[in-house]
């Protein structure tokens, strides 16, 4: 464990807590893409298949359970909770995310570490996580002004993977056989997709103005 990875995990945890705070505090999920939440739930379920078979550390197991439970509870909340589901921007959240799932599944069948069930789902989860934010970014552009908690949620979600890239660079130079090209490339694509969001987020922070994404 290195500081970059720990900071990345904590940033990821913060993004989940900010989203939970927004939903429970405001009893609203306006501005949040249900499709991105569903994709993330799928990412965690596909990636943590080894939750019960490989014990790595208490930290690792606890964090996996937290990410799986939180993503499933957010999806459940946005679909079932009577108050929350009413505020869902159903008509704006129209990204056809099933294509993302199909594309990533195909990609994982073609490019993976080893042709085993767990490895293919691991690669699938990395490709899917790289594009999972797309429905959310499209929704932000369509919904005009973004409330603070939603903006912070997306910011921390993007920042966590950027920290993981530093972690991979660090591990590349400190561990001899560290070849994780699939996660490095997926992580770079994922962080790049946040590029313009980070730019407008920085501008809004600098000018102390509301976050506005150009349509």
């Amino acid at each position: 464990m290195n500081i970059f990875r720990f900071a990345g995990d904590m940033t990821h945890l913060i993004s989940v807590l900010v989203l939970l705070l927004k939903i429970y505090a405001t009893k609203s999920c306006s501005g949040i893409s249900l499709k991105t939440q569903e994709l993330y739930a799928l990412v965690f379920l596909a990636r943590y298949l080894d939750l019960f078979t490989d014990f790595i550390s208490v930290y690792n197991t606890v964090m996996k359970i937290v990410f799986i439970m939180s993503s499933l509870s957010i999806v459940w909340c946005m679909r079932m909770h009577p108050m929350v589901r009413r505020s869902y921007d159903k008509e704006l959240d129209t990204f056809r995310h099933y294509f993302l799932i199909a594309g990533c599944l195909l990609g994982a069948l073609l490019v993976h570490e080893k042709f085993t069930f767990q490895e293919i789902f691991w690669a699938f989860s990395l490709y899917l996580e790289a594009v999972a934010i797309l429905p959310q970014l499209v929704l932000l552009q369509r919904s005009g002004n973004v409330d603070n908690l939603t903006g912070q949620y997306v910011f921390f979600l993007g920042a966590y993977r950027a920290l993981y890239i530093l972690n991979w660079i660090y591990r590349y130079f400190t561990e001899k056989h560290f070849g994780r090209w699939i996660s490095c490339i997926s992580g770079l694509v994922q962080t790049a997709l946040y590029g313009d969001f980070f730019y407008y987020y920085f501008i809004s922070w600098k000018n102390n103005a509301k976050l506005q994404l150009p349509a």
Partner: peptide, 10 residues
């Protein structure tokens, strides 16, 4: 070994 070397990440 390389197997578990990188599966320790979340």
């Amino acid at each position: 070994d390389s197997e578990s070397a990188y599966k320790d990440e979340l």
